[in-house]
Design a protein around this nucleic acid. Structure first.
Length: 551
RNA sequence: GGGCCCAUAGCUCAGCUGGAUAGAGCAACGGAUUUCUAAUCCGUCGGUCGCAGGUUCAAAUCCUGCUGGGCUCGCCA
């Protein structure tokens, strides 16, 4: 789809090339105007005023003819305190509309391949229990960001890092063993920091049913190995299915254990050694991470010879780099906020490009039920599982509600609102709007108004009311806005764009009849309606939600 | 105490790569309907953009300090 702003900037640059100096030229960038002004505006005159010792408005007047002469400009006016306002030509808008109508929703906002490979790693919760509702935000942010990056032409891989190695896994296995051993007339003590959720005894039962028959003939170590293997398998399956139910799927489930078994820890350790950034102290191997911005040096190999998570994490990201990704975007919950500095120090100490690792932290989610915050605590054992949440409110609603605020801000997720079939529910609003447009199309088909699939056959000039214009603006700016959202790594913006579009569609629908006696006006409005629905579908595609044709 | 995030309307939040009267949803009040889906739309009410400085022609937006809240500071992961 066309980048209106970029197209205009190029034309403006050309139009003003003899009127601006080399330093001034970069200042000539336009922006979408606010409602009530012409479509795009240029604040350039105000920026030039100082050096040119001229009043901004006088500069605007001087530049106006050149700007008005550019191919995509219709009317151009100067306005106080020093703007140049540009109304787009009918031809330009017709081109945008035609472009939309010729492209299916799934590729409408999508650029050509740019040759770069990006990995988005998200959720990656330990496979020691079912996903918690909080993980849902990571799932929504990660999957929508991945979709968003795809629009920019990146080859995006979605990866789940399975932390199936280390002490947490051991505790998990032992906790299951504690409940399972009595079934074979043995005992296993519950470890001090064992997992105490109610799913553990259930897992013990399932594991027993699956591999219990093998227990009699094996040693204790092997028995624990079987339990770990089987327990992990069951938990991962529940995680996978909870995510799947939310419309989230992965290209890769990457096992930490396999990383270690394939020797990546020693590989990365060698790399560290070659770079001279490690040293021995107190029987452990340390990384001189303070030299790379960390606030303390980090242990890589413990006194007992075991690798720390830090080492494995370094190995993991080193491995990602070796796999050919130009960038890894890791998405973590707020409890990992302290990992940013140490992890970036790791990347630096490995000599990876400064921009290789990007970390996105999403803040805490508060769930609301009947106006009261739901208290989620391990103490009460009242952990709400993601799967239950998705079952209760639906996948689309869950995805939308998790994107209701920027990842940087805390989020209030109102379960009652998410469930209602009313338009207070943003997910429902999008669906209703889409169904409504589909209904118009069905009606239009019966009166032969659906024929114009290309905007050339419609007179865009007739789309002149404020409702028409605001809706047109939504279409014009779409690609620019999506690009900005992708660049800023802010998937929630796509939801806001979709909601804004839906609002404009409904205002348009309410005020302006599409199907009417005036056939040329009807055709023009039909083109606008069709394009709007297409764009709404494109946003939904990025958001990973479905829009019904009727409700 | 250090690091990071947040503070904008009664509530929940957008807006933050500086630009025109600061936006949306909800709540409250009023209005539109012989409807292309009223499951809608429009209007009104409501804001010292946490506080104090600074930079700028221009600051919610950038810088500094402060206040309040959140997360976090393991040879756990």
């Amino acid at each position: 789809m066309l980048n209106t702003r970029k197209t205009l900037d190029a034309q403006i640059g050309l139009a003003l090339r003899d009127l601006l100096t080399a330093e001034e030229a970069p200042l000539a960038q336009c922006a979408l105007s606010k409602p009530g002004f012409l479509d795009y505006s240029l604040a350039l005159p105000m920026k030039l005023a100082r050096n040119r010792h001229m009043a901004p408005l006088a500069i605007a007047e001087r530049l106006r003819p050149a700007v008005a002469g550019m191919i995509s400009a219709g009317r151009v006016e100067s306005a106080a305190p020093g703007y140049l306002n540009i109304q787009l030509s009918e031809a330009f808008m017709a081109e945008v509309l035609t472009n939309i109508l010729r492209t299916p929703s799934t590729s409408l906002l999508r650029k050509n391949d740019n040759g770069y490979k990006i990995q988005v790693e998200f959720v990656s919760a330990n496979p020691t229990g079912p996903l918690h509702v909080g993980n849902g935000r990571g799932a929504a942010v990660g999957s929508v960001l991945a979709n968003l990056l795809e629009t920019q032409g990146y080859a995006v891989d979605r990866e789940y890092y399975v932390n199936d190695y280390g002490s947490k896994m051991r505790l998990f296995t032992q906790s299951i063993a504690h409940y399972l051993y009595p079934k074979i007339d043995l005992e296993f003590p519950m470890p001090e920091d064992g997992y105490r959720g109610s799913y553990i005894p259930q897992l013990a039962q399932s594991v027993y049913e699956r591999v219990g028959s093998q227990f009699a003939s094996v040693q204790d170590q092997q028995r624990l190995g079987l339990i770990e293997e089987e327990g992990k398998k069951l938990v991962l399956e529940s995680i996978r299915s909870a995510l799947e139910d939310m419309g989230v799927s992965y290209d890769t489930w990457f096992s930490e254990r396999s990383l270690v078994e394939q020797g990546w820890n020693s590989k990365v350790l060698q790399e560290f050694r070659a770079r001279g950034v490690i040293y021995d102290s107190e029987g452990a191997v340390w990384l001189r991470s303070t030299e790379f911005g960390d606030d303390k040096d980090r242990v890589l190999v413990r006194r007992d010879g075991e690798p720390t998570y830090t080492l494995t994490d370094a190995a993991y990201h080193y491995n990602k780099y070796q796999r050919g990704y130009t960038k890894s975007i890791d998405i973590f919950g707020a409890d990992h906020i302290g990992h940013i500095v140490p992890m970036q120090a790791l990347m630096k100490s490995l000599g990876l490009p400064d921009d290789f690792l990007e970390i996105i932290i999403y803040q805490i989610v508060h769930f609301l039920r009947n106006g009261q915050r739901v208290v989620l605590s391990k103490q009460t054992g009242e952990m709400i599982e993601l799967a239950d949440l998705v079952r209760e409110v639906g996948a689309d609603q869950a995805r939308v509600f998790f994107l209701l605020s920027s990842a940087d801000s805390e989020l209030e997720f109102d379960l009652e609102v998410a469930k209602t079939n009313s338009l207070d529910n943003p997910a429902y609003y999008l669906k209703y709007t889409h169904a409504r447009l589909c209904s118009v199309e069905r009606q239009a088909e019966t009166v032969g108004l659906l024929l114009p699939v290309h905007a050339e056959s419609a007179d865009v000039e007739l789309l002149s009311t404020s409702e028409d214009r605001e809706l047109l603006k939504c279409l014009l700016k779409a690609q620019d806005e999506v690009d900005d959202a992708a660049c800023a790594r802010q998937p929630h913006r796509v939801l806001y764009l979709a909601s804004e579009l839906a609002k404009s569609i409904n205002a348009f629908y309410q005020k302006e009849k599409v199907i009417q006696d005036n056939m040329s006006l009807g055709r023009a409005r039909m083109v606008l309606a069709l394009a709007s629905r297409r764009l709404l579908g494109a946003y939904a595609h990025i958001l990973g939600i479905t829009l019904p044709e009727s409700m």
